[in-house]
Design a protein around this nucleic acid. Structure first.
Length: 595
RNA sequence: GGCCUCAUAGUUCAACGGAUAGAAUAGAAGUUUCCUAAACUUUAGAUCCAAGUUCGAUUCUUGGUGAGGCUACCA
């Protein structure tokens, strides 16, 4: 039982004794820095049940606690706040327990059921850009956080590998490609295919312009442009299984997948299971047919199939075109159901997709619920804000994107130049240095993106590079490296066994703060999981590191003369380092031994 | 038009309805005979506007203002 639970019951007891009232709950908060105390009981909410002056009530409760709870050392009351000072021995004991816990903060016992986390989900006609980076980092991190909070997690993505847009790059390659391949051009496969997607758009716009100058309206021109009609024909051939088209489709997709694989590897994300839209859209169509029979959907005169969501405050939504072909949401229905078939223990799913699709997911979840799937009430759209550039939205077709591979390389470069300037690693080999630069560069990028609340949009200015100082990834990595340095030296000096005779240690204020922060780690993970927010982990880690650096500056660890105190400080530092490492691993960020 | 998000120091981010709104960065001023100065210490600087609910509002409600998004037989 932790101290808060003890205090809750004792406060309730006090109120019952003093005022003969049962309190439903007691409100705590960490005592603010400007006041003396460790934990604060807020008296105000009690005023609804107990009439009287909050200060007097606080005094009375405080006196009671002092008497009955051994770990309450002192208290003071300011306005309606009862500040409690907890004894050092409580914190020393709490630390002893934390210190001996392996993988502190990670929940061991697994909950029943599993969650599938979908993220990335790219189109196969354009390379990944900064927007995908945010998506990947968020999805990966939320998956790791859910795991740490005791859930079984499957990471997945849906690969958008069919449709007219894919045919556009295929067509452009056929017309202008002259047999170019990744090998012949030296380009990454996704980059190569992306180029043809852009080439299509360019040629198409030219045709449209031509038609307009010949007297067509823009609308007519856009529909009648020969290139578009050819692409549409290609899509029909693909759906009909025309071998030549299918073979080209396979070849070009394979190029893209190889390119994505490299980017994912560099980014440090992975997947347990992949889904391809080309495999699931047919199931979606079947499900719609079934739902039509059971009355969930209805058919309009022209043959198109709809669902009426006006009761839910939404509109009617089409689920099947009049020609019987699938729309976007059809395949999403199919994919969701396929996933539960493949992994029957799934009882929830998280979709990491930008906030422009808020409406789409609202509709999707409602449809699945109406179709009667029990897991449909545990679906969550992890919606995040767009990453915009000062010039506006990123558009692949117009080439105004910050490419993922380029950005990663650039961050690594920056890390390298800062590191060289500091020159602390002269005895590292070139490979070791390169690996380190990557850890630091990626750390800066990932932290920069993940520390922001997912809902907020990010304005990314490529001119102003991502910081390496202050509230940044490298700042936290640096602290970790510093502690490792201490630990390397400490193993020769101190015997790393915690002494039972803890009472002899006097606890420095900074040490107490550090222990309090360590105690908050498991709850932080739970909260981050409940809110699907890596930002909470990032903020927590930052607070911990900030506090440690301050401690490091004020207190000598290895220079301490008292053996017990020295041992305690080394162990405390080691645990702080471990929590930094764990916290950062939940963000998908590595920590270096030196930097 | 309808619906959905967001709005906090010059800038980038925090704050279960709680105390004097925290950090970082940019600015000013300091700290290396001592465990890594990518660090630490000090300093100045902000809740879009208006009403309401509350003992108490950055947080909840309503109405404005501003930014972005959705409202396709595109994905």
């Amino acid at each position: 039982m932790n101290i808060e639970q003890v205090l809750t019951s004792k406060v309730k007891e006090a109120v019952k004794d003093l005022y003969e009232v049962e309190l439903p709950s007691v409100e705590f908060q960490p005592t603010r820095k400007d006041f003396e105390g460790d934990i604060t009981v807020v008296i105000f909410p009690m005023l609804r049940f107990v009439k009287g002056n909050p200060e007097k009530i606080g005094e009375a409760i405080g006196a009671h606690l002092l008497k009955v709870v051994a770990d309450v050392a002192q208290f003071n009351v300011i306005k309606g706040f009862l500040n409690i000072i907890i004894s050092n021995s409580y914190y020393l004991e709490a630390f002893a327990e934390i210190s001996s816990t392996e993988n502190y903060g990670i929940r061991r016992e697994k909950e029943k059921g599993a969650v599938m986390v979908e993220y990335s989900s790219p189109n196969t006609n354009k390379p990944l850009h900064l927007g995908h980076i945010r998506n990947n980092l968020l999805g990966y991190s939320v998956a790791e956080i859910l795991k740490a909070s005791g859930k079984k997690v499957y990471k997945t993505q849906i690969i958008n590998d069919r449709g007219i847009h894919i045919c556009k790059s295929m067509l452009a390659w056929k017309l202008f490609g002259d047999g170019e391949t990744p090998t012949s051009s030296g380009l990454k496969g996704d980059k190569l295919v992306g180029n043809y997607y852009v080439a299509f758009d360019k040629a198409y716009k030219k045709e449209v312009g031509q038609l307009i100058s010949e007297g067509r309206t823009r609308e007519e021109a856009e529909q009648q442009a020969p290139l578009l009609q050819e692409a549409q024909e290609m899509l029909r051939q693909w759906e009909a299984g025309e071998p030549e088209v299918v073979s080209l489709w396979k070849t070009m997709n394979a190029w893209v997948y190889q390119g994505f694989k490299e980017t994912y590897f560099n980014l440090g994300v992975d997947f347990d299971q992949l889904y391809y839209e080309s495999n699931t859209y047919l199931l979606g169509k079947d499900v719609v047919e079934d739902g039509l029979k059971s009355g969930v959907f209805f058919r309009k005169d022209d043959g198109s199939v709809w669902i009426d969501l006006t009761d839910e405050g939404l509109d009617e939504k089409i689920v099947l075109r009049s020609d019987g072909t699938a729309v976007y949401i059809t395949q999403d229905i199919g994919t969701a159901i396929q996933r539960v078939r493949d992994f029957p223990d799934i009882n929830g799913m998280v979709y990491t997709v930008g906030n422009e699709q808020d409406y789409h997911f609202k509709v999707l979840f409602l449809i699945l619920k109406k179709l009667g799937y029990s897991w449909a009430s545990h679906l969550y759209h992890l919606s995040y804000g767009m990453v915009d550039l000062p010039s506006g939205k990123m558009k692949s077709r117009e080439g105004t994107v910050v490419d993922a591979d380029d950005l990663i390389a650039e961050m690594t470069q920056t890390a390298a130049s800062i590191s060289r300037e500091l020159g602390k690693l002269d005895d590292y080999s070139e490979e070791e240095k390169e690996a380190l630069y990557k850890i630091i560069g990626l750390g800066a990028l990932k932290y920069y993106i993940l520390k922001v609340d997912p809902k907020k949009r990010i304005l990314f200015d490529p001119e102003e590079s991502v910081d390496f100082q202050g509230n940044t990834g490298p700042f936290i990595q640096y602290t970790y490296a510093r502690i490792q340095s201490i630990l390397r030296k400490a193993t020769e000096i101190v015997d790393l066994k915690i002494n039972n005779n803890k009472q002899n240690i006097s606890l420095h204020a900074k040490e107490k703060e550090l222990i309090k922060l360590l105690l908050a780690f498991p709850d932080t993970i739970s909260l981050a999981a409940a809110q699907y927010s890596p930002a909470l982990i990032a903020n927590y880690t930052y607070d911990l590191v900030k506090e440690f650096n301050s401690f490091y500056q004020q207190v000598s660890i290895l220079g301490e003369e008292d053996e017990q105190t020295k041992t305690f400080r080394v162990l405390l530092s080691a645990k702080v380092a471990e929590v930094i490492k764990t916290g950062f691993s939940l963000l998908g960020i590595q920590v270096p031994e030196r930097m």
